[in-house]
Design a protein around this nucleic acid. Structure first.
Length: 357
DNA sequence: CAGTGTTGTGGGCAAAGATC
DNA sequence: GATCTTTGCCCACAACACTG
């Protein structure tokens, strides 16, 4: 970081490389500097590092980089799995956190031929260790209304530590998921449904995402009842309908529904759309609640209505000061002209994400 | 039907900046 | 100095559309 601030591209790049190891590496690095770094790949090189992955890694070692000593070349799947199991045994004593191993095609010419999908290489594959699990109580199932009007059930859990972090919420996806079926009607959790009051096992998928794995029927209260998915929007009271062939239930309120209107606003100002700094989710909620911003156009008249010299000013709001108000107005002015794709994305049309926009 | 790409939903953490 | 909010990063998976 210090190097990056000083404009040192090499050190900045190195820190980026460390960051690519993910949040666990970054957390560990922050807790105990100095950072340690295993070189595991490369970007541009003036000449090939080798003909194989293993050869390139050896070359990096020759150049003075530290590489992970556990890497090895395997000839078949059995050898790969033996390596995976061997590393899993050593996991606790490594001195750094890992969540699995990565298998890579050794021949770099084959790597080049295999190429990439939209987000991942075809020549490398992560094999993660099974995640830690914990039992806890499902206290409630809340319904969230998204910007498209989709009603999403969220599990409220008695907070429990899973893999070092406290988990209190987990998505339940949709009504079928709670009932124990997937979108094709096939049973999940062997068809066991999820009920408020159940003891559930939770884990973090990919060591990150909280998920409910299963319910413990032996601890289910005798008086529990299957979860009844709401037939109306919990926010605006409009009918909530599920179209044939769709997974989600949608609020029919449209922009009449405050939840939809507000979530649409949040999306409008979000990073991929107008990206107005200083106007995050919390600020949108507060301005919306007071009627200062009800629709996207209101953002661009905010200074006229609540800027300097007006009776009610942003800078006098709780949590706001002169500096933050000034910064907000400047950020809004800066976004009066934006690329067309950001505008299209910002409109929040269903099925039109960043790529389509 | 498998593979792929995209969207939309959900989650967490650290750092930075600002206010309280 | 403590606290709050935002930013920016990371990740999973369900759902769906499309292709060959």
């Amino acid at each position: 970081r210090e190097g990056a601030e000083a404009g040192d591209d090499f050190v900045g790049g190195l820190v980026d490389g460390v960051a690519l190891h993910g949040h666990r590496a970054r957390a560990a690095g922050a807790a105990a500097r100095p950072l340690h770094f295993f070189a595991y790949g490369w970007g541009e090189t003036s000449e090939p590092l080798g003909e194989t992955q293993s050869g390139a890694m050896a070359r990096l070692r020759g150049l003075g980089f530290v590489t992970n000593p556990l890497g090895l070349v395997c000839d078949d799947v059995e050898a790969l799995l033996a390596c995976y199991r061997g590393i899993e045994v050593q996991r606790a004593t490594l001195g750094y956190d890992i969540d699995g191993v990565v298998y890579k095609v050794d021949d770099l010419a084959l790597q080049a031929r295999l190429g990439f999908r939209s987000t991942t290489p075809r020549w490398a594959l992560a094999h993660k260790f099974s995640a830690q699990r914990a039992s806890t109580l499902l206290e409630a199932i809340d319904i969230q209304v998204g910007r498209t009007g989709a009603l999403s059930p969220v599990a409220r859990l008695t907070p429990v530590t899973v893999g070092g972090v406290v988990v209190a919420n987990a998505t339940l996806h949709n009504a079928d998921y709670i009932a124990g079926r997937d979108s094709k009607g096939q049973p999940i959790r062997e068809g066991r449904d999820i009920r408020v009051g159940d003891w559930v096992t939770v884990y973090r998928a990919g060591d990150v995402i909280p998920k409910i794995e299963d319910v413990d029927l032996s601890r289910r209260p005798a008086d529990s009842v299957p979860y009844a998915f709401p037939k109306t929007c919990p926010i605006c009271g409009s009918d909530a309908v599920r179209e044939e062939g769709e997974a989600a239930v949608y609020c029919t309120g449209g922009l009449i529904c405050p939840a939809q209107a507000m979530e649409k606003l949040k999306h409008f100002v979000s990073r991929g759309a107008f990206d107005i700094e200083g106007l995050g989710a919390k600020a949108v909620e507060a301005f919306f609640a007071d009627g200062w911003i009800r629709e996207p156009a209101d953002i661009f008249t905010l200074a006229d209505r609540h800027g300097p010299g007006r009776p009610t000013q942003v800078k006098n709001r709780e949590g706001w000061g002169g500096k933050s108000a000034e910064n907000l107005f400047a950020a809004i002015e800066q976004r009066r002209a934006i690329p067309l794709d950001r505008l299209i994305f910002g409109l929040g049309i269903r099925h039109v994400g960043e790529t389509a926009a």
